[in-house]
Design a protein around this nucleic acid. Sequence first.
DNA 1: CGACGCGGTGGGAAAAAGTGGGAATGAATG
DNA 2: CATTCATTCCCACTTTTTCCCACCGCGTCG
Lengths: 151, 151
Amino acid sequence: MFRGANKVTLDAKGRLAMPTRYRERIVERSNGRLIATVDRADRCLLIYPLPEWEEIELKLRRLPTLNPTVRRLQRLMIGHATDLELDSSGRILVPPPLREYAALSRDAMLVGQGNRFELWDEPLWNESREQWLKVDESAEELPPELSSLSI
Amino acid sequence: MFRGANKVTLDAKGRLAMPTRYRERIVERSNGRLIATVDRADRCLLIYPLPEWEEIELKLRRLPTLNPTVRRLQRLMIGHATDLELDSSGRILVPPPLREYAALSRDAMLVGQGNRFELWDEPLWNESREQWLKVDESAEELPPELSSLSI
DNA sequence: CGACGCGGTGGGAAAAAGTGGGAATGAATG
DNA sequence: CATTCATTCCCACTTTTTCCCACCGCGTCG
């Protein structure tokens, strides 16, 4: 599974070098094929190995299409899902519409989140992280699963 | 289990010599493989033997992803979790993003906390400790789990 | 009192990863 | 049909990382 925060850079052509420690796993899991789409809550991209994405897409398509919330979710996620492939030097090319959505310029953070990566504009990632830390400090009501969690 | 506070230093490359008394245990428990991540409340790092971490990651991933508090926690903990390994001289390399998060420069404290270590910037550790002492002095109301505790 | 061993520290060389640029290929348009 | 633009592929350079070895200080033992 994918974990860890990696500082990465997009070059002038929008290419991003996948950190090598993940490459082998991506190749064996999906032959280097990935899907990028947008996150429904934050201005970041989600990057899945193809098989992972296919499961998710299936789940999304099974939802009741007449429900407007469902429809929105499908439009966002399926509508933006784009095929990516690792090139010969282990880079992916982030297409302009997605780059724009996530406000990606040069410096970015690639963050492992289990079955997927999240790709953030670096300044935005830093700001957001500070926010999360503040919120958690204020000890809002925790869901029951969390209040008993021992880490 | 890990106990005790150790003064350690990070060299110019971010390497940290694990105190020898812990090395044998780490090697036998996880073959020298560790995971470092960020603490969600304080500016310090948490360092787990790999098997310990895997349990925690499993717990985190089982939580409902749509809950924003859960999402934050996953982003912070899984998102920063980085594989470390003891090198041939028993050192670990603390990666730049984590070093930055915990404001680690040269002098640090490695503190045993049962199933994990905490790694603090030394000046920050000292300040924080003073704070904890002050707060306890003021004898705030204790949660029920604590009020019956015999130490 | 000196020699040895261990833990800690630093540095240098080799290897690998990241980065950029250019050429070739293909698509679009006048 | 030709020209131009964009995309893809490949190669080469630079930087970073990793691995290994040597040194230093300290404590212990002979």
